[in-house]
């Protein structure tokens, strides 16, 4: 069963993380509302964006430590809904979705203010107001990120293929009956786990670096709007996924906790 002490620590870690996400989102929304008064809140917004990045950093550090014990639970987390789980890439989101989210949030704001933009007016300095230089930098980041992502995807593919090769494949063929796994099995799977931990570290690094670079391209106000948009999306996807699991009669572990 998954109710080992360690399982709970992974679970409580996730629960804490989602709580932080909710608190951060609230704070981000408050900051965006505050900004509507027209005053200069650059310093506060910048500080808030940095705080959020720091939270991502802490999350990555902690899960790296926990993953050394049980990496599989991060590739296939029992605390995620089936929907979220099916969309995971190396234990998290694809970093390139940050750029897609920027385009989506920017596009929505842009079309609703098209006339003003055409007249050369700046509207609120939000994500719809991305400058030529920002677009160029975001495009550069996009191309770079996709390239690095593809390299990691290729590494993941190799790891997946390794399952059917030496030594795991032969150990399976020679395995007799049931009972606890032999030393050979433990050694083989543990080596495989190490590779998975390394891969997840690389993926987490890429996620963090992409996020940091994107935030540095955006103005503090745009950064806060982007972070708020991202968190809102994450929390919604989680909630919708849980509801769908319920609809399909899947009892979700986190409920009732």
């Amino acid at each position: 069963m998954e109710s080992s002490d360690k399982g709970y620590s992974d679970l409580s870690f996730f629960r804490d993380w989602m709580k932080i996400q909710e608190e951060d989102l609230l704070e981000l929304h408050q900051a965006l509302e505050l900004n509507a008064d027209g005053g200069d809140h650059t310093v506060e917004l910048k500080r808030l964006a940095e705080k959020n990045i720091a939270h991502f950093q802490e999350y990555a550090t902690t899960r790296r430590r926990l993953a050394r014990d049980d990496v599989s639970s991060f590739f296939s987390p029992s605390w995620c809904s089936s929907f979220e789980g099916s969309m995971l890439w190396v234990g998290g989101c694809r970093p390139s979705i940050f750029i897609r989210l920027v385009y989506a949030l920017s596009g929505k704001e842009f079309e609703s203010n098209l006339r003003e933009y055409l007249q050369g007016r700046r509207i609120g300095g939000g994500l719809g107001d991305l400058s030529a230089n920002q677009i160029r930098l975001i495009n550069g980041l996009h191309l770079k990120t996709v390239g690095l992502e593809d390299k990691l995807s290729s590494k993941l593919a190799s790891l997946q293929e390794d399952m059917a090769d030496e030594p795991i494949a032969s150990i399976a063929q020679e395995s007799r009956g049931h009972g606890p796994p032999s030393r050979a099995v433990n050694e083989a799977l543990s080596t495989h786990d190490d590779s998975m931990v390394n891969l997840m570290e690389e993926a987490d690094n890429l996620r963090l670096c992409t996020m940091k670079e994107l935030i540095s391209i955006l103005t503090p106000f745009q950064a806060v709007a982007f972070l708020a948009g991202g968190k809102k999306l994450h929390l919604c996807l989680h909630e919708w996924g849980v509801l769908r699991d319920h609809e399909h009669g899947r009892h979700w572990r986190m409920s009732g906790n």
Partner: peptide, 14 residues
């Protein structure tokens, strides 16, 4: 440059 950026942004928005 502004015109090319605006058209690009419009394409992305659509």
């Amino acid at each position: 440059s502004d015109a090319s950026i605006l058209l690009t942004k419009l394409a992305l928005a659509r």
